[in-house]
Amino acid sequence: MNDFFLILSVGMCVLVLFCLYRGTFGPGVLNRAAGISAIGTKTLIILLLMGVIYDRIDMFIDISIAYALLNFIGTVVLAKYIETTGEA
């Protein structure tokens, strides 16, 4: 079972690579922000998978809750900044 989670997290990391392509080369800030928010969700899941692999999921879950709550602030502030300045 551990091997399965390990392979799954490596596969998830490969997906992160594709999102990172959109994040680094995507035209404009908005595409980059979309890519980065996708990376954020995947990060949350990989954190939990690592928690299962290390068998201390009660420790790792706090970081995941922090991400689920905080991930949204950065995007909202970025959106508000773009909206007030008016240049995408």
Partner: peptide, 16 residues
């Protein structure tokens, strides 16, 4: 960490 998250809550309140 807790202080930073607390500040983040207030920041979200200011922004919204």
């Amino acid at each position: 960490q807790g202080g930073v998250i607390l500040a983040a809550g207030f920041v979200l309140l200011v922004v919204s």
